[in-house]
Each structure stands twice: as C-alpha cells, then as structure tokens.
Amino acid sequence: MLKKAFYWIGLVCSSLTLSVGSAIFILWWAARAFFAIDLSRLGGFGLMWIIISVPLALIGLVCSGIAAGYDSNSKWFKDGLPFIISFSNIPALWIILTLETNIAERTYFELRNRSDKNIDCVTLESVSFTKELGSLKPGASLVSYYVPRYLGGQNDQSMPAVEEVRVVFHTKADSVTRTMPYAMMGWCERIAVTDSLTLQQ
C-alpha cells in the first residue's frame, strides 16, 4: 500500500507540472491565434506555475524514487513513468519559452466584415512582406498576424516608429487599400470593416 501511495503521489505531481504549464501556454496562444485576444494575465500565472513546479517536481521525484526502490519486484516502465514525465518538463519548458518568444513578437488582429460587400481576397502588404489572408464574406471575420518592423526613432505620440502595413480589399468592382492601425509587437487588435471598406477599431 505504501508503495502504491508513493507511486501515485509521484505520478500526480510530475503530471501536474507538465500538464498545467502546457495548458496555460496553449490557452494563451489559442486566444491570440483564434480570437486576437491578449490574455496577458496568463503570463503571470505561467511564471507563478514555474515557481510552484520546482518543489512539486522534487516531491514527485522523491516519492517516485521511494516507490521504485520499495521492493525488488518492480516493473521498470511503470516505475520509471513518473521519472520520464518529470524530466520531460525540461525540454517542454524550453520549447514553450522558445515558442512564447516568437509568438510575443507578432501582432495579431481580427478583421470583421460589417459591410454588405463580399470581399473576394484580403491581402496584407508592406515594404518587407506580402501576405494573402483569403476571402471575407459579409458578417464573417478572419484572424491573422504579422511581425511589426521597427524603423528606429519615435512617432508624434512618442511611440516607436514602425513600418506601415496596408490591407487591400479585392472585390468584383475594384480594389481598395487601407492603412492598418498602428500596432507594436505583442499587441492584439480587433478591427471592423465598414460599408465604405474603411477600418474601425
């Protein structure tokens, strides 16, 4: 019974450190990637969980070690599973931090078509890139991202100067080009497309 108790404590502690940390990251990323919403508080929760995970992982390792050495009739895979999960937190943390750094550089935005026009193709363009986003029917929306390019210096509002990004709406009648709202790295923007195909935040 004692072996089983120590085993399950080790397994639960090691699983919690991996699953909760991964869930926080996935939720933060999904909110940006699918809804252009910045759940900035999750960053604080993620840091807090890293601090909590250290003693939790140590408890898991100690309990797993006690369970594994409790008797000689042990099964190496079953007894080693908590150790495998615990040590997988190290590469998982590295992967999450690397992805978080890359994602945090992006400006996510949602374009919602509140006009009665069927936009056949939406293109995002600047001096440094061109990106086709697809079609946009009336009432529909799309979420995408780009990485702002800083130019150095400041603008009139004492904000860093960034490269201008334009959005081109292609309809059957013609093509309309609008300038995207000012945005810095890490920002999330929700933008409405009006009847005159202008952008409204």
Results as ranks from 00 to 15, higher is better:
38 D>C: 10
175 S>G: 05
119 I>Y: 07
93 L>E: 06
35 F>T: 09
137 K>H: 09
91 P>R: 03
147 V>D: 15
131 K>I: 06
36 A>E: 00
162 V>Q: 13
46 G>F: 12
136 L>M: 05
65 G>P: 06
128 S>A: 02
108 Y>V: 04
157 Q>K: 14
120 D>N: 14
87 F>N: 05
43 G>S: 11
4 K>Q: 04
138 P>M: 01
18 L>I: 03
1 M>A: 11
45 F>M: 14
122 V>E: 00
35 F>M: 08
94 W>H: 08
198 T>C: 09
46 G>P: 09
140 A>W: 01
48 M>H: 11
60 G>E: 05
96 I>Y: 04
8 W>H: 03
16 L>D: 07
161 A>R: 13
57 A>C: 11
35 F>R: 08
32 R>H: 06
16 L>H: 07
27 L>T: 11
151 L>I: 07
195 D>E: 13
55 P>A: 10
65 G>L: 07
104 A>S: 14
154 Q>N: 15
97 L>P: 03
173 A>C: 08
165 V>I: 12
196 S>I: 02
106 R>Y: 01
90 I>S: 00
109 F>P: 12
119 I>F: 06
149 R>K: 15
97 L>N: 09
8 W>P: 00
177 T>I: 07
175 S>M: 08
45 F>K: 10
70 Y>I: 01
193 V>Y: 06
199 L>E: 02
186 G>V: 12
83 F>K: 12
23 A>S: 05
11 L>N: 10
162 V>T: 15
150 Y>C: 14
16 L>I: 09
142 L>C: 02
200 Q>C: 02
156 D>Y: 14
23 A>M: 06
43 G>W: 13
60 G>H: 00
69 G>K: 12
108 Y>M: 03
130 T>C: 10
187 W>N: 14
63 C>W: 01
163 E>P: 08
143 V>F: 00
136 L>F: 00
91 P>F: 00
33 A>L: 09
24 I>E: 04
138 P>S: 02
196 S>E: 10
82 P>L: 12
185 M>Q: 11
182 Y>F: 10
99 L>P: 01
170 H>F: 14
56 L>H: 03
191 I>A: 01
58 L>T: 08
49 W>I: 07
201 Q>I: 12
4 K>M: 04
200 Q>Y: 04
34 F>L: 14
80 G>P: 11
8 W>N: 01
127 V>F: 13
16 L>K: 09
179 T>P: 07
140 A>C: 05
139 G>S: 01
90 I>D: 03
168 V>E: 04
180 M>H: 05
154 Q>H: 14
176 V>T: 06
105 E>F: 05
51 I>F: 13
9 I>W: 01
54 V>G: 02
172 K>F: 13
40 S>R: 11
46 G>C: 05
51 I>A: 15
163 E>N: 12
88 S>A: 12
5 A>V: 01
39 L>P: 15
129 F>I: 02
110 E>F: 05
199 L>Y: 07
110 E>S: 10
110 E>Y: 05
95 I>F: 12
16 L>M: 11
53 S>A: 13
48 M>G: 11
189 E>M: 09
151 L>V: 05
139 G>A: 00
194 T>C: 00
134 G>F: 04
98 T>Y: 06
60 G>A: 08
150 Y>L: 13
